[in-house]
Simulated scan of single mutants.
Amino acid sequence: MNGKLNGKRILIISTNYGVERDEILEPLEALRAQAATVVHAAAHNQPVQTLLRDTATDIVLSPDTDLSSVSADDFDALVIPGGTINADNLRVDANAIALARAFAQSGKPIAAVCHAPWLLVDAGLVPGKRLTSYHTLRADLQNAGGVWVNEAVVKSSTGSWTLITSRDPDDLPVFSRTITDELVG
């Protein structure tokens, strides 16, 4: 299969309940369409219940593996979808925190949409980064040392790793393109 991301391996992480359907599926499908190998790791290797706009249950996904079975060493980038419940639980998951830190320490890009930057707050990765999110996280991200802006996508290369963030499901096309562009170089 030919594509801009042929040979690239991307990890998408979630909990098993509450991930926003479009925020996991759209990047996953867009990156696979560019020939990337995309692995979905959930907190547990059990079905993942997605939600639509944080309120209505939607489709159930089968993850490829669980968070404790993956390593940043095996991937080129990390993608973190939102969903308020998903993000609130990921931010206190020791495996998710360790993965985010490992990607940053390895200088590999991290992409987070909507509420997903909460994980970066708890991983201590926000200071000095310019970023966006769902508008209700503005104070949290500023208090964690980030520079919050209201833009569809923000790419921050401050420090030794790149952070790509977007606000909500409406920004997913540009979010996925920015991830692709970052990995192509």
Rank of each mutant, 00 (worst) to 15 (best):
residue 139 A to V: 14
residue 104 A to V: 14
residue 59 I to V: 11
residue 134 Y to V: 00
residue 153 V to K: 00
residue 55 T to I: 09
residue 104 A to Q: 11
residue 22 D to C: 05
residue 20 E to R: 12
residue 90 L to G: 02
residue 73 D to W: 03
residue 155 K to W: 02
residue 113 V to D: 00
residue 107 G to A: 13
residue 122 D to Y: 13
residue 54 D to K: 05
residue 114 C to F: 01
residue 99 L to V: 12
residue 142 Q to N: 13
residue 154 V to F: 03
residue 124 G to H: 06
residue 156 S to Q: 09
residue 38 V to E: 01
residue 20 E to L: 11
residue 156 S to I: 06
residue 75 F to P: 06
residue 49 Q to L: 07
residue 184 V to D: 04
residue 142 Q to T: 14
residue 8 K to D: 12
residue 70 V to N: 01
residue 111 A to E: 00
residue 109 P to L: 13
residue 120 L to Y: 07
residue 22 D to E: 12
residue 51 L to W: 04
residue 22 D to S: 12
residue 139 A to K: 14
residue 110 I to Y: 02
residue 133 S to I: 00
residue 27 P to M: 02
residue 39 V to K: 00
residue 153 V to R: 00
residue 175 F to T: 02
residue 65 T to C: 04
residue 138 R to Y: 04
residue 80 I to P: 04
residue 104 A to C: 13
residue 181 D to S: 15
residue 35 A to R: 09
residue 17 Y to A: 03
residue 41 A to C: 05
residue 119 L to G: 02
residue 89 N to T: 12
residue 24 I to M: 09
residue 37 T to L: 08
residue 36 A to Y: 05
residue 4 K to F: 06
residue 167 R to F: 08
residue 24 I to N: 05
residue 155 K to T: 15
residue 60 V to L: 01
residue 83 G to N: 06
residue 153 V to Y: 00
residue 165 T to P: 12
residue 121 V to C: 08
residue 173 P to K: 11
residue 147 V to L: 13
residue 118 W to E: 04
residue 121 V to L: 04
residue 59 I to G: 00
residue 160 S to Q: 15
residue 39 V to M: 01
residue 164 I to M: 03
residue 135 H to C: 03
residue 158 T to Q: 15
residue 113 V to Y: 00
residue 31 L to I: 13
residue 52 L to R: 10
residue 11 L to F: 09
residue 101 R to S: 14
residue 141 L to D: 05
residue 116 A to S: 02
residue 184 V to T: 10
residue 6 N to S: 15
residue 11 L to D: 07
residue 12 I to N: 02
residue 176 S to Y: 00
residue 130 R to A: 12
residue 46 Q to V: 10
residue 15 T to G: 11
residue 82 G to C: 05
residue 84 T to H: 04
residue 155 K to F: 02
residue 185 G to N: 12
residue 103 F to V: 14
residue 138 R to A: 12
residue 55 T to S: 08
residue 131 L to I: 08
residue 83 G to A: 09
residue 136 T to W: 01
residue 93 D to H: 11
residue 143 N to V: 14
residue 119 L to P: 02
residue 144 A to H: 10
residue 9 R to K: 15
residue 7 G to V: 08
residue 81 P to Y: 01
residue 130 R to H: 10
residue 79 V to I: 13
residue 118 W to M: 10
residue 108 K to R: 13
residue 34 Q to N: 10
residue 61 L to K: 05
residue 1 M to I: 12
residue 166 S to G: 15
residue 62 S to E: 04
residue 34 Q to M: 08
residue 39 V to Q: 01
residue 156 S to L: 09
residue 63 P to F: 02
residue 115 H to N: 03
residue 113 V to R: 01
residue 144 A to F: 10
residue 22 D to Q: 12
residue 9 R to M: 02
residue 26 E to Q: 06
residue 75 F to I: 14
residue 176 S to A: 15
residue 172 L to M: 10
